[in-house]
Design a protein around this nucleic acid. Structure first.
Lengths: 192, 192
DNA sequence: AAAAATTCTTGATAAATATCAAGAGAAGTG
DNA sequence: CACTTCTCTTGATATTTATCAAGAATTTTT
């Protein structure tokens, strides 16, 4: 499974063979069956996850028991609760598998170790951070200023492959609308 | 004016006197009168800004001429268009002064230079990045899953001092609601 | 393959928020 | 100080989206 991550790295940075071995030595692989959890609300997130295979989501549950999907992750995406990881505080999110998955885990301290020993790795981590921030800010813009239909269209455009893999009600909660509204929007769009 | 930034830095990192001089040598100070622009839509953002004094906002204008405030910045906050800065692409945002302001500017290349020469500076930049990402993700959660009233209450809690400094319609657009709705929400809250 | 559980759609109604319009207050300008 | 411009509030109405309820379609389990 390491080859997936290796390919990802080769694509982004250029490092020595010894460094790949160092990286591999701290990777932990975790298989998840559908519905199995990678992180439970209340637990402290201790590892960053890189998705080798499968499909996961991150979500919170409000007081009324309603789930709010905040993030999807598929092959070559990272997933974790950065806030919990950074501050060692209990997470307010759950992460579980939508499809059977294999996730590569690296502990917080090993991420720091690798960042120190491999400058290019550190730069990559920072680049990812910057990209995430840009994407997240883009998403805020859409969330605040667009109608439900526009948000769904944007989602389709940004993540065409996810739409078919994610159950509709999760997409709806990602967009901040109810499943019923999403169903009506889809009907409207298809009739155009 | 540099002393404002120096205090900020002293609070966050520990660096040598020579480093402060290096930093100061690349700082540019810009005074802005109310309504004056720091960045215009269409221009490439070339500098990161640190607010020494005053109050600014970042906003975009949609096809109908409606302004969407995406960010406020006051003393000790950073402001820039990260996306434009990172990719050297035209910005889709405007940044202007809500109150007379003094902004300390550091060019992209000098940020990179400082990051290289002063490791603690680089770490600080990354820490800020992480914090911004956390804050931005928090904001998405609120935007998608809360009512207008909850969003306003959260804004009050997070930025009590900004509420009095920012015109209401800018707060409204920051929250993704109309000024009229904000006005009604304020009335409701005060009658409780 | 049948049964059970989950997911999706549709309709009727309710609630939240936007839009349009008008006027009151406040602040900036000559 | 009077005038203009901006900002904020309030009311009436329209639109969007949520909620509740039921049934159809799909998937999972037995």
């Amino acid at each position: 499974m390491f080859e997936f991550f290796r390919k990802y790295l080769e694509d982004k940075i250029s490092i020595a063979e010894a460094d790949y071995q160092l990286i591999e030595s701290v990777c932990i692989f975790k298989k998840l069956r559908k519905h199995q959890f990678l992180l439970n609300e209340g637990d402290v997130c201790t590892h960053s996850g890189f998705v080798c295979k499968g499909f996961l989501r991150k979500y919170s549950v409000n007081d009324n028991g309603i789930e709010h999907t905040v993030y999807f992750a598929t092959e070559n995406w990272w997933i974790s609760d950065r806030q919990s990881l950074m501050n060692c505080t209990p997470s307010s999110y759950n992460i579980d598998a939508i499809e059977d998955a294999v996730v590569l885990l690296i502990s917080k301290s090993n991420i720091e170790m690798l960042s120190e020993k491999i400058p290019a790795f550190k730069d990559m981590v920072n680049l990812i951070l910057q990209r995430s921030l840009n994407a997240t800010q883009e998403r805020i813009n859409y969330a605040l200023r667009s109608t439900a239909e526009e948000r769904y269209s944007q989602f389709l455009k940004s993540f065409p492959s996810l739409v078919h893999r994610a159950p509709r009600h999760m997409v709806a909660s990602y967009l901040g609308i109810t499943p019923e509204t999403l169903s009506r929007i889809r009907k409207q769009i298809s009739s155009k």
